[in-house]
Amino acid sequence: MGQSKLLISVVAGAVVGAALSMLDRTTREKTIATTQKMKEAISYYAANRDELQVLVEEKVLAAKVLCESVSENVNTIAEKVDEFKELPSTIQEMINDTKSAFSLPHKE
Rank of each mutant, 00 (worst) to 15 (best):
K59T: 13
K80Q: 10
K80M: 08
L66M: 09
I77A: 05
E86C: 09
L104K: 13
L55P: 04
K99S: 01
C67R: 07
E72V: 09
V74N: 00
L61D: 12
T98V: 05
T76M: 08
D97V: 02
L61G: 06
V81C: 03
T76F: 10
F102T: 02
V60S: 06
I77K: 02
V54M: 10
C67K: 06
T98S: 06
K107S: 15
L61K: 09
E58W: 08
V74Q: 00
V81W: 04
R49K: 12
S69Q: 09
L66C: 03
K80G: 03
S89V: 12
K85D: 13
Q53C: 13
E79A: 15
A63Q: 07
C67G: 14
F84D: 08
L66T: 03
T76R: 08
K85M: 11
I95W: 02
K80T: 08
S103L: 10
E68K: 04
L66V: 02
K80N: 11
S69N: 10
E51I: 12
E58R: 09
V70K: 00
K59W: 11
E58T: 13
V70F: 01
A63T: 08
L52R: 09
E93F: 04
S71G: 06
I77M: 05
I95K: 02
K85T: 09
K85S: 09
A101F: 00
F102S: 00
E72N: 12
L66Y: 03
E57F: 14
V65W: 04
E93W: 02
F102E: 01
N75P: 01
I95M: 01
T90D: 10
T98E: 04
L61R: 08
E68W: 02
F84Q: 10
S100L: 04
I91N: 02
S89H: 06
K99R: 08
E72C: 04
I91P: 00
H106V: 15
K59I: 12
V60Q: 07
S100M: 04
E58A: 15
T76D: 10
A63P: 04
A63G: 06
L87M: 10
F102C: 02
V74T: 01
E83K: 09
E72I: 08
V56C: 05
R49D: 15
D97S: 05
Q92A: 12
K107A: 15
A101W: 01
V81P: 01
S89Q: 09
K85Q: 11
S69H: 08
A78L: 09
L61P: 03
I77E: 03
V56W: 05
L66D: 03
L104Q: 14
M94L: 06
